[in-house]
């Protein structure tokens, strides 16, 4: 094929012609396989993600011997089931708290002037750059029985509240750590919403609440879903915050994995726990996916 091109090519200097001819099929090939562009990322993911994950899965079936014993053990141990359900429920609460806290904040970011917006962005990002451990320890000081919150409550005449070492304390701490992951996707979606649509709804007689509910909210839902998924999935794997802010009744699955692997050297069981968490996350996402697609269509239609 290269020869036919060679013969039909218009005149020119030899080497240049040869170069052009050689380049042409190469360009063709790249155009035919654009997925090749993803090769570096794919290789990295295989080495750093797929291979270790496969090792974990295979060890969960092969240690100490081939079979399902690690999964049988997982589902026949009450603690594991209880902690798995608790992990999902705490993550769901964290996601809810994040949505409620982030939504008005992200909206505010879209309506203020540029200088104020910078301040708001910094308020989100600066804590984000501080290590999670440091932030968690700060929460210890705030939430503990003799801490800032309880001292203030007692000083103004209220009784103390039990915050640290309760699921509530863990949700508060995790929500603060994860808040940027909700605010940033929400902001990027809200920034793209044309506020004239809300004005149009108002001019057609909708009260502000209705205009928000029927126009603005559906348009912002993709951001809510994106943020919720990121926050929920990150929350499932949290380790430090529940360990420091929680008590026995707020232990999450990662702590149990840690004790299986690090103190019992039971890689099989630890792997099985990880796989169960991963698979149940996939199932949950699969259930949520159709809901999200539908909402998304609604939003784009309006």
């Amino acid at each position: 094929m290269s020869q036919t091109i060679d013969t039909t090519a218009p005149g020119g200097s030899g080497p240049r012609q040869a170069n052009g001819v050689a380049a042409q099929p190469r360009r063709w090939r790249l155009a035919a396989y654009p997925s090749l562009l993803a090769l570096p990322a794919v290789l990295l993911l295989i080495a750093a993600m797929a291979y270790p994950l496969l090792t974990i899965v295979s060890r969960s079936f092969s240690e100490p011997e081939w079979g399902l014993q690690n999964y049988v053990w997982f589902f026949s141990t009450d603690v594991n089931i209880q902690v798995l359900l608790r992990t999902f429920s705490i993550s769901a609460w964290v996601t809810l708290v994040c949505v409620i806290a982030a939504y008005p904040y992200a909206y505010l970011m879209t309506v203020v002037g540029p200088r104020m917006r910078l301040v708001l962005i910094l308020c989100v990002l600066v804590p984000f750059w501080v290590s999670g451990v440091v932030r968690t320890l700060a929460w210890v000081i705030l939430l503990q029985d003799s801490g800032v919150i309880n001292s203030v409550l007692k000083a103004i005449g209220f009784g103390g509240v039990k915050l640290i070492r309760t699921p509530t304390g863990v949700v508060i701490g995790m929500a603060q750590v994860l808040l940027p992951f909700m605010i940033l996707p929400l902001y990027s979606v809200m920034r793209g919403i044309d506020l004239r649509l809300v004005q149009a709804a108002r001019s057609l007689g909708a009260r502000p609440a209705l205009a928000f509910w029927q126009v603005y909210l559906p348009l912002s839902l993709p951001g809510v879903f994106a943020g919720a998924i990121i926050v929920f999935i990150l929350a499932l794997g949290f380790y430090i915050t529940p360990a420091l802010l929680g008590g026995p009744r707020s232990t999450m699955l990662s702590t149990l994995v840690q004790s299986q692997v690090l103190s019992l050297l039971n890689w099989g069981r630890g792997g099985a726990m990880g796989v169960v968490l991963l698979v149940s996350t996939f199932i949950l996402l699969a259930l949520a996916a159709p809901l999200m697609r539908q909402r998304h269509k609604q939003a784009s239609r309006s």
Partner: peptide, 12 residues
């Protein structure tokens, strides 16, 4: 012992 201790730590 580790298993029982872990259960104690996880609220059971």
């Amino acid at each position: 012992a580790s298993e029982k201790w872990t259960a104690l730590m996880a609220g059971n």
